[in-house]
């Protein structure tokens, strides 16, 4: 057991290093920062203008614009990451397959799920790292807000974003384990993300038992709850279930692929 955790750590470290020594990781981070920064500026100026306009009228109910900005921006980020995450997850296993290193991992004293866990851990850590500057500039930008922003809803929101990302990355990892073609893996994961959005749209537009069920499996719905500040343990359970499902399916598919003739 001790050896397995040592192996998980070894693979995790190697994976994480590879994000920082290849231009790939920086490129993705750069694009993500650019796009999210662009949206943040737009939202910031819009809401500032709005607050000046509305704030002068004492008849209107007062609105916490800073909090509103955080929530809207988190919703936007939730959409932006849907495009970034498939690009992060597409290479997780396809690259190993292409290089033949999957054969090295599979013939080392380590189980498939440990490899999957380590890989997912590394990519989630990388995603967490690129989120940090975004959280930091928000705190700086809203530092002067009155009333002062409370960090709690902000952190829950980003925790939700991290969970959402982990769930999508986990499923994306499974898709990448099915093929040795990066493009196929990326398109497959985009398809999955599209499906998730579709599920969310259906659960928003109709009512009934089916919709209730769909709402429970909709990742974006659970994310929205966390962004709204509704911390429900069922949301967290849903995210964790998706993450575990992804790891489980990945381990199974890697195992099953060995049976095939290559």
């Amino acid at each position: 057991m001790k050896l397995i955790w040592a192996n998980v750590l070894a693979i995790y470290t190697r994976e994480l290093q590879s994000y920082f020594i290849t231009p790939w990781g920086y490129l993705i981070a750069g694009v993500f920062w650019l796009v999210s920064g662009f949206f943040f500026s737009i939202l910031y100026y819009n809401l500032t203008a709005q607050s000046i306009l509305m704030g002068s009228d004492p008849n209107l109910p007062s609105v916490d614009y800073a909090y509103e900005l955080i929530r809207t921006f988190l919703r936007v980020l939730g959409q932006v990451v849907l495009f970034i995450l498939p690009i992060l997850s597409m290479n997780l296993y396809t690259e190993e397959r292409k290089r033949g290193t999957l054969e090295l991992l599979a013939t080392s004293p380590i189980t498939n799920w440990a490899v999957a866990l380590a890989k997912l851990g590394a990519v989630v850590t990388f995603f967490f790292t690129i989120l940090l500057p975004i959280v930091a500039y928000q705190i700086v930008a809203l530092g002067g807000a009155s009333p002062a922003i409370s960090l709690e809803p902000l952190l829950w929101g980003y925790f939700g974003l991290l969970l959402l990302a982990s769930a999508i990355l986990s499923l994306g990892m499974f898709i990448s384990s099915l093929t040795d073609n990066t493009i196929v893996a990326a398109i497959g994961t985009f398809g999955l993300v599209l499906l998730l959005s579709l599920i969310d749209a259906v659960s928003n537009s109709t009512t009934g038992i089916v919709t209730d069920v769909i709402a429970h499996i909709s990742l974006l719905k659970h994310y929205e709850n966390l962004v709204q500040g509704v911390v429900d343990s069922s949301s967290i359970v849903a995210f964790v279930s998706y993450i575990l499902l992804g790891i489980f399916l990945t381990a199974q598919s890697v195992e099953a692929f060995r049976f095939q003739r290559s």
Partner: peptide, 30 residues
């Protein structure tokens, strides 16, 4: 753990140094 295996295509991580790669393999082989 008792086996060293070289597949048909040598399994290598191109972005690593030889030493770093061997250290990684040594780690996962226990």
């Amino acid at each position: 753990q008792k086996i060293g295996y070289l597949p048909e295509i040598p399994p290598l991580y191109p972005e690593m140094t030889i030493e770093g790669f061997l250290a990684f393999v040594a780690k996962i082989k226990g």
